[in-house]
Computed example of a mutant assay.
Amino acid sequence: MSSGPGRRTGSYGAGLAGHLAAEGIEVTEVNRPDRAARRRSGKTDAVDAGAAARAVLGGHATSTPKSKNGPVEDLRVLKVVKDSAVRNRTQAINQLKALLVSAPSQLHESLAGLSNPKLFVACAALDPHANAVHQALHVLAHRIVRLTAEATTLTRRITAITQAHNPQLMELTGVGPDSAAIRLTAAGDNHERLRDEASFAALRGVSPVERSSGKSQRRRLRPCPMW
């Protein structure tokens, strides 16, 4: 079974790919099709399916898809949620500080010079029934506190999974829980599919491909096949 454009084994086709793999059926990830060829032949499900089948039968598609049933998949989903919490927290902080700029001078002066933690505590303590500005700052401060707690909890969980699954990775200089999770997610639970340095380079999109035209010869980086 091959999975190509529109039915990626990492997203829409993940459930089917996992079921087939569990039944012992070989699943192959088809690389992104050549853009020029796709423009010439058009884009339909039938055309894409035919192109995927020819790529597999011709030996051009050889990538084994990532499995999604182990600790690395747990890291991926937790990292997605943590990143969302961090982004939303940053947005809430920016909104709170923007509101303070135009807040009444007495309120602005009472909160000026506070560090972020003290500022959030002070805003969270404001009476939300006093006026709209107090309510907005109160809501944002509580949102920031909640999202901070979410991110902290998820970081602890990510750290625990990483240390249990690959403790050596966390011992590397400059590698924390987030960067470790990113690296493990790139390799996947079934990292044995990366048979050599060349396959890992292809996964990361850094394998050179020769291109020449007339007397000009150059190399470019091959796009990551596990897109």
Rank of each mutant, 00 (worst) to 15 (best):
Met1Trp: 08
Gly50Lys: 10
Val139Phe: 09
Arg157Gly: 01
Arg40Thr: 02
Gly188Trp: 01
Gln163Tyr: 05
Pro5Tyr: 11
Ser67Pro: 04
Leu114Thr: 10
Phe120Asp: 04
Gly15Tyr: 02
Ala180Asn: 03
Ser11Pro: 02
Gly58Asn: 13
Ala21Glu: 14
Ala181Leu: 07
Val209Pro: 01
Arg146Tyr: 09
Lys66Asn: 09
Lys118Gly: 00
Gln217Gly: 00
Gly10Ile: 07
Met226Gln: 08
Thr155Trp: 02
Asp83Ser: 10
Thr155Tyr: 07
Asn116Ser: 12
Val133Ser: 00
Arg222Trp: 06
Glu29Thr: 03
Thr173Phe: 08
Lys215Cys: 09
Thr162Trp: 05
Gly13Phe: 06
Leu114Ala: 04
Thr155Asn: 13
Gly42Asn: 06
Gly42Pro: 08
Ala14Gln: 13
Ser11Ile: 06
Pro65His: 01
Asp48Lys: 05
Leu99Ile: 11
Leu184Asp: 02
Asp74Cys: 01
Lys118Pro: 00
Ala53Lys: 05
Cys123Tyr: 06
Val80Arg: 11
Arg143Met: 10
Gln135Tyr: 13
His19Thr: 14
Ser102Pro: 00
Leu203His: 07
Gly42Leu: 08
Arg76Glu: 03
Leu107Arg: 15
Val86Ile: 15
Asn31Thr: 15
Ile25Trp: 04
Ala151Asn: 06
Leu100Ile: 14
Ala52Trp: 12
Val80Trp: 07
Leu96Lys: 04
Ala187Asp: 08
Arg143Cys: 06
Arg193Val: 12
Tyr12Cys: 08
Ala103Tyr: 15
Ser63Gln: 08
Gly113Arg: 14
Ser115Val: 13
Thr148Met: 05
Thr155Pro: 01
Thr62Ser: 05
Gln217Leu: 11
Ala85Ser: 12
Asp45Leu: 05
Pro117Ile: 09
Val133Pro: 00
Met226His: 11
Arg40Ser: 00
Leu107Glu: 13
Leu114Arg: 14
Gln91Met: 14
Leu111Pro: 08
Arg220Gly: 08
Leu147Val: 12
Leu184Tyr: 03
Thr62Trp: 08
Ala164Gly: 15
Lys68Glu: 02
Ser84Cys: 11
His134Thr: 10
Gln95Ile: 05
Lys68Gln: 02
Ala198Gly: 05
Thr44Glu: 09
Ser2Arg: 13
Lys79Gln: 06
Glu73Cys: 05
Lys79Ser: 10
Pro167Tyr: 05
Gly4Val: 07
Glu73Arg: 12
Gly59Lys: 11
Asp74Phe: 02
Glu73Asp: 13
Pro71Val: 04
Asn31Glu: 15
Glu197Gln: 13
Ile25Arg: 10
Arg146Asn: 14
Asn94Met: 05
Glu73Phe: 09
Ala53Gly: 03
Arg204Gln: 07
Ser110Lys: 12
Ser63Ile: 13
Arg40Phe: 00
Val209Gln: 07
Ala124Thr: 10
Thr173Val: 15
Arg219Trp: 15
Leu96Ile: 10
Glu26Lys: 03
Thr44Arg: 09
Asp178Gly: 00
Ala17Ser: 14
Arg193Asn: 06
Ala98Val: 04
Ala202Leu: 11
Asp45Pro: 08
Ala49Asp: 09
Arg87Tyr: 12
Asp48Val: 08
Gly42Phe: 05
His108Ser: 12
Leu154Gly: 07
Pro208Trp: 07
Ala125Leu: 03
